[in-house]
Design a protein around this nucleic acid. Structure first.
Length: 269
DNA sequence: GTCCATGTTCTTTA
DNA sequence: CTAAAGAACATGGA
């Protein structure tokens, strides 16, 4: 569920309620959901105050009052929600942080377990992550894209080049920028890179405003689904007509992922 | 039973 | 510092 807009939605719905709260108790139901796998995180979290919850790429970063940090990655099916202690604990809930005030629990559940809890300690964990898309500029984007001749769609999914975009918003951004997904990244003309830079920001901002896309199970920390799916122009719309030109949206497979695009609005060059 | 899914990382290949 | 394609991970819904 989690690309940048969904992760931002979780942070925005969680941070105001838990910043400044003390962790009273930690319940870890699966040790293998933590990296490093043999780290006992309970004593590291118990009795600490959460001083910040922020987003970096698709990571939800918690900062503690002793300056230690960890992050939660939602993988494909992760949910991070704020619950009353009496609420039923759903299957695949791997971590529960019981807070002192407010008397609520932060719960992490992830059926497919592609996500996890990653201990950072004093590090910021930014190594190998590319720039944030929302503060990107054309020159920086061009620098990332010049490094590979893979298709632009694949390049947008590479978190080392740009960090936070996933399969939905890569397709949506390329549509808005009128770029064919198979175009080699290092062959995009400067004008196309500039369009893409603007398209990425506009797409992500609109998606954040709608609280992200819920395809199946994504919810914010308040358990509310996102409303951006109905605004998708191409993702998941293969076989349907382009909203702009009525051409049928096509689907191809790239890097093992479905890629949807309008062959008329996004011509190959 | 089959196929597919919002992600990342490790292995294989050219 | 190869670079890129492919497989693997695990669960559940259509």
């Amino acid at each position: 569920m989690p690309e940048l807009p969904e992760v931002q939605t979780v942070v925005s719905t969680l941070a105001p309620h838990v910043t400044g709260a003390r962790v009273l108790a930690v319940q870890l139901n699966r040790k293998d959901i933590v990296t490093p796998i043999d780290l006992d995180i309970a004593p590291l979290l118990e009795n600490r105050v959460i001083t910040a919850v922020t987003r970096r790429a698709k990571r939800i970063v918690f900062t503690l009052d002793n300056a230690n940090r960890f992050y939660i990655h939602l993988g494909m099916s992760g949910q991070l929600t704020l619950e009353t202690p009496s609420a039923e604990v759903k299957k695949h809930t791997h971590l529960i942080l019981r807070l002192q005030h407010p008397k609520l629990e932060i719960r992490f559940r992830d059926p497919r377990r592609f996500g996890g809890i990653f201990w950072l300690g004093a590090a910021d964990g930014d190594n190998a992550l590319g720039p944030e898309p929302l503060t990107l500029n054309p020159a920086r984007l061009a620098k990332s894209l010049a490094s590979t001749r893979r298709p632009i769609k694949s390049a947008l999914l590479d978190q080392r080049l740009i960090a936070g975009i996933g399969n939905i918003y890569a397709d949506e951004s390329l549509y808005l920028a009128a770029i064919h997904p198979l175009t080699p990244a290092n062959e995009l003309p400067a004008a196309a890179v500039a369009r893409l830079n603007r398209a990425i920001k506009q797409t992500l901002r609109r998606a954040i405003a709608a609280r992200g896309s819920t395809l199946r199970d994504f919810v914010g920390a308040d358990n509310a689904p996102g409303g951006y799916r109905v605004k998708h122009q191409v993702y998941g719309r293969d076989g349907e007509k382009c909203r702009k030109c009525r051409t049928v949206i096509e689907r191809i497979v790239l890097t093992g992922r479905s890629t949807c695009y309008c062959p008329r609005c996004q011509p190959a060059r």
